[in-house]
């Protein structure tokens, strides 16, 4: 599974970071998404799928299996 994020579209809700803190972080100044790795961190596959579904800005895209 490969993750891409749209920082321009991100509304800095941080919901992905609460769900998958090993995969996503927030920029300290702007609050927008920082992708820590292009693959989900260990054990966070389901949480990353949830993040894509719940992102308020639809700024997270998943590709591949």
């Amino acid at each position: 599974m490969k993750i891409t994020t749209d920082t321009d579209g991100c509304v800095a809700s941080g919901q992905c970071v609460l769900l998958a803190p090993g995969t996503f972080d927030q920029d300290e100044d702007t609050g927008t998404v920082v992708l820590l790795s292009e693959e989900p961190a260990a054990g966070e596959e389901e949480a990353v799928r949830q993040s894509e579904l719940t992102c308020p800005a639809a700024a997270i895209r998943l590709s591949g299996a």
């Binding site: 509304v11 941080g14 803190p21 927030q26």
Partner: peptide, 13 residues
């Protein structure tokens, strides 16, 4: 949003 987002970020919470 830009002003408040950092204060309510997931790491801060």
């Amino acid at each position: 949003r830009r002003m408040l987002a950092p204060a309510f970020s997931a790491p801060r919470m």
